[in-house]
């Protein structure tokens, strides 16, 4: 059965990490869910790049953070926060493609 990351995780959220980076956090409800998700190896740079239609080089980091049962994905922002053409100064509404990504579960 396929389920979205939003259905599996407690939180899926995005925010600036400084004016030039965007960071996406996925926090799982408990250790077994977190370990099961990690074992899927569902989030790699190619997948994230495809979800956001960006280059793999712009997916800077994908980090597993055991103390919070969480995964963090950091992207290069397409432009500095608040530059002319900005859509989301705080970067707080860029999480949806990740939240709606379905994995075998």
């Amino acid at each position: 059965m396929r389920r979205t990351i939003g259905e599996i995780a407690t939180f899926v959220t995005s925010k600036n990490a400084g004016p030039f980076l965007l960071t996406l956090d996925v926090v799982f409800p408990d250790e077994p869910t977190y370990r099961r998700f990690k074992a899927l190896r569902a989030l790699d740079r190619a997948t994230v790049a495809r979800l956001y239609a960006i280059k793999e080089d712009d997916v800077l980091k994908i980090i597993e953070f055991d103390p919070a049962y969480a995964m963090k994905v950091t992207l290069r922002r397409p432009w500095g926060s608040g530059a002319v053409g900005e859509r989301d100064v705080y970067g707080a509404q860029q999480h949806v493609p990740l939240m709606q990504h379905a994995v075998e579960w």
């Binding site: 939180f11 925010k15 600036n16 990490a17 400084g18 980076l21 960071t23 956090d25 926090v27 800077l60 980091k61 980090i63 953070f65 103390p67 919070a68 049962y69 969480a70 963090k72 950091t74």
Partner: peptide, 14 residues
């Protein structure tokens, strides 16, 4: 969970 999750907030590497 709340404190550990805060270690993720607004930073690129927890």
């Amino acid at each position: 969970a709340s404190v550990a999750a805060h270690s993720l907030y607004e930073r690129s590497d927890p």
